[in-house]
Design a binder for these strands. Structure first.
Lengths: 202, 202
DNA sequence: TACTTTTATTTTGTAAATAATTAAAAAAAG
DNA sequence: CTTTTTTTAATTATTTACAAAATAAAAGTA
């Protein structure tokens, strides 16, 4: 028994599935999210569903009102989108700077594999999966630089932004941009990495 | 029956109480939060407690691990604190700019009353309450400018920062700073308001 | 017909009980 | 005596059942 079988809690799986549905547009803005129906869909009781809805609410993908229920959020306004880009850049530029020391060979390999997966999803035209791996790339950096604290602040901003560009920007450029960022990090070149990052976040 | 008796849901009351305990330092960092005990303390079942803990986790005040439970977060690192100040300024400067159009006489009156409450809490040396009203002041601006979307992003940052300066900075200056911000807004003077804001956020 | 009021239905909120997991304590082996 | 294994206790996760609230439908009134 050498293999480490990673167990993924049901609530995370459900949250993941719903995030995908919302980001992909399958669940349109303002769609009512009925607890009972979701419970049946995932084959669990309403308890875990409520947990997930609360989580997604705090992530900004869902809005909920007392005694009324939850529904899918609407896209950000233009100004809010602009502000979000600004903040996201600030956070991730911070991440780039602070990540250089902590970056080991293993970390770099992990990031290589993330990019490989990006490429693979792009080749197979799995754009929702591509988006999720895209987020994963950035999350890796943010977590390494600032831990869960920073991820906590950063994550809702990114998720909410993603609601806006639904399946736009699905060119090879996207993958290449991330390769350039990683190249900069690997060369310990903050300026290059930051420049590539700024190009990617928009 | 003319009076509008505002009903506050149990979960919000519990969340509020716990936030106070954490911000005031009554619940020290890394304190384990037992669901059963909390349920007994507030006289409810574990269901609502779980909801609140999940909420506070997303707000950054609490950390929770699967099958292990929740505990009070530890203060931010120095770098993270610095970054948080930067982001918070960015958001609230945005708020100042965007709030000028939307600001009505009624809104101004509401903000006056918030400052009155700040003064009163300061006079009575109720510093935890003072902190909460301080947050309320800024939240009012942020909400008016960017709605719940922006509050969602902003709130965890502020809460987390507050964990760091526990009951420092409890001088009359604090109240005055907010008066100056409001003066600037009232005069529709973005520059003055922003300058006052930057002094206040640190 | 248009409007209000009442009733019924649906949906969310809370409580209580059971299952699964983890941490602690006791027993066994080296 | 130390380490490992087994057993016990405590805690979280989930389900089920019930209570409260909101929406939808129906009945009554102008």
């Amino acid at each position: 028994m050498n293999r480490t079988n990673k167990i993924i809690p049901v609530r995370e799986q459900i949250a993941d599935a719903l995030r995908s549905d919302i980001i992909s547009g399958e669940l349109a803005a303002n769609t009512k999210l009925n607890e009972q129906q979701l419970a049946e869909r995932f084959g669990v009781s309403r308890g875990p569903i409520r947990d997930v809805l609360l989580k997604l609410t705090k992530e900004g993908l869902v809005v909920s009102k007392n005694n009324i229920g939850s529904s899918v959020s609407s896209p950000l306004s233009a100004e809010m989108q602009k502000l979000s880009i600004d903040i996201r850049r600030k956070i991730e530029e911070f991440a780039i700077k602070n990540v250089m020391d902590k970056m080991t060979e293993n970390h770099l390999k992990e990031m290589d594999s993330i990019i490989e997966r990006m490429q693979s999803h792009f080749d197979n035209e799995e754009y929702t999966e591509l988006t999720k791996v895209d987020i994963e790339f950035h999350q890796f950096l943010v977590r390494l630089a600032g831990g869960e604290d920073l991820v906590n602040i950063w994550y809702p901003i990114v998720l909410r932004m993603r609601m806006n560009y639904q399946r736009i920007k699905t060119s090879q450029t996207l993958v290449d941009e991330h390769k350039t960022i990683l190249d900069g990090i690997r060369a310990q070149d903050v300026k290059a990495a930051t420049a590539a990052l700024r190009k990617n976040i928009k």
